[in-house]
Each structure stands twice: as structure tokens, then as C-alpha cells.
Amino acid sequence: MPELYLRLLDRVLTPILLVLAAYLFLRGHNEPGGGFIAGLAAASAIQLQILSLGDEPVRRRYARFLHPMAGLGLFIALLSAILGILRGGYFSSLWGKVQLGEVELELGTPLLFDLGVFLIVFSVIVSFLLALSRQDEGKTP
């Protein structure tokens, strides 16, 4: 049953949670944070949508992306490990600097790996959440 207040909250909170996820993800570069925790935060945004809209609309919206997303995440994570061979060994990290106007960003394969982790965690958790929140659960057909 869709809930009015939850819907309002969802409007407000989903963007905040997604921004929080992005923040945690980038912060994981040097400080506590990272792909796993960011994936959980982003998945909690989806759980909020499941609670407010019911699981069926959410499933219709996201379900077909989940498996490809997990595949992409796994691919990126493996790629970041394989790319290390350019420096002589698997899993050794490559670093490069990117100039964005005033800001200088230090980007490397660990970030790529984190991105893979984020995608896998997000898609797997969301598919678990969708599996657990079936509306027809407990009803006899």
C-alpha cells in the first residue's frame, strides 16, 4: 500500500541518499568510505522507493538493469586488476593526474576497482531487496 508521507520523504531523501553515496564513494579514496558502503547507501535509497511506491513499480523500473550492472561491476573490478600488468604485476595500481580547471584529481585503478565493487554491491543488494519485498508473499493464489 503506497504511503503518502513516505512518498514525500522519498522525493526528498532519495537524492540526498544518492549524493551521500557518491560522497562516500569518492571519500573512500583516502578516508573511511568506499564502494561497498556507497553501494549500501544507494541501495537504501531504492529500499525507500520500494516502501513508498510498492515493489512492482520499482521492479519495473530497475529489475532489467540489475544483472547487467553486476556483470559490468565484475568486469570493471577484474579489469582494474588486469590493468596492473602495465606496471609489471597484476593488482599493482596505476595512477594518473587529471586537471579539472583549478582542481587536480589523482585518479587510479583502485578507484576503478571501487566502482566495480559499488556496482556489484548495489545491484546484488537491490535484487535481494526486491526478492524479499514481493507483494504476493504470504497470499495464496
Binding site: F65, P68, G71, L72, A81, I85, Y90
Partner: peptide, 23 residues
């Protein structure tokens, strides 16, 4: 010895690309 990584990379990459092909 670097070929040893192929035992993990080859199935892993094939699996991940396979998952990409759903839907």
C-alpha cells in the same frame, strides 16, 4: 607465471560479460 592469472581472469571476464548480455 603471469599466465596463472588467466585461470581467474578468463572465467571471471567471460562470466561478467555474460551477465552484461541479459535483458
Amino acid at each position: 607465471p603471469n599466465w596463472l592469472a588467466a585461470f581467474i581472469a578468463a572465467p571471471g571476464v567471460a562470466a561478467s560479460l555474460g551477465l552484461l548480455f541479459t535483458g
